[in-house]
Amino acid sequence: MTGWDSRFETELLRLGVQPGRARQLAEETAQQAAECAAAPDSLFGPAHLYARHLLSELKTAAVPLGGAKGPVRLRLTGVGKRYRRRTVLDGVNLTVRAGEVAAIVGANGCGKSTLLRICAGLTRPTSGSVQRTRRVGFVPQDAGTADWLTADEHFTLFGAAAGMAPRRARSTGEHLAARLAWRPTKSQPTQHLSGGTRQKLNLVLGELHAPDLLLLDEPYQGFDQGTYLDFWQQVHSWRDAGRAVVVVTHLLHDLQHVDHVHDLGAAQ
């Protein structure tokens, strides 16, 4: 096996493919390159990016287009949250499947962000139960980045957390950034980025480890119109690739883009 094939297989494994299947896909890919008499990297591009591409192409089929539904990625049953005597959430039920986009809407202070943090596992519910897929990406409303690090260094850091080698993490991050029409500049610390660009960084960091479920908390703040549309296009391509997406929003015209709307109502 060449270096490309083993890198490809390693990346498939890291993305959660069963070992037997990963080996099989790696062997087939090697054989495909051989029948074209081409080197794998000239035919398919970098191994880690092609692994992501192939999986998203294959997952598209896993979510049937008409009628039938994908597997459940997130299920909340009767979830409630109290801070001392103040009830923030009460009896929330929500099911999100692969290939679906769910929006959480509601007035300011109704617990939208708290609910999203419960989905992520960063806040504990006081009642009810949560079932969730293991691979999850969380994009908070603000913060969540280090002011003095550049975008590339963030890719390295978050990649390392997910077990990716630095160079691979950087090239994956730059690839994902390009899809949001953003080319990160070297040597510019995050604190000097505009609010919209920082949100793009936040999105890329949430997606870097190819999670099955994406949790986004009003992620488009500071986006201009073009980027806003890029963002929704990105959400749809995640959906088409069989991922589940939960978006917290307060913009009503966002709702045309989603499959479910969960209204938390007025502030409690």
Binding site: F138, P140, G144, T145, A146, L157, A160, A161, A162
Partner: peptide, 20 residues
Amino acid sequence: NASRGVDPRLRLSGASTAAV
């Protein structure tokens, strides 16, 4: 203290507390 926003996200991405 400055990394309080980043650390929970690193954990969610798969890093251990000891590593962070």
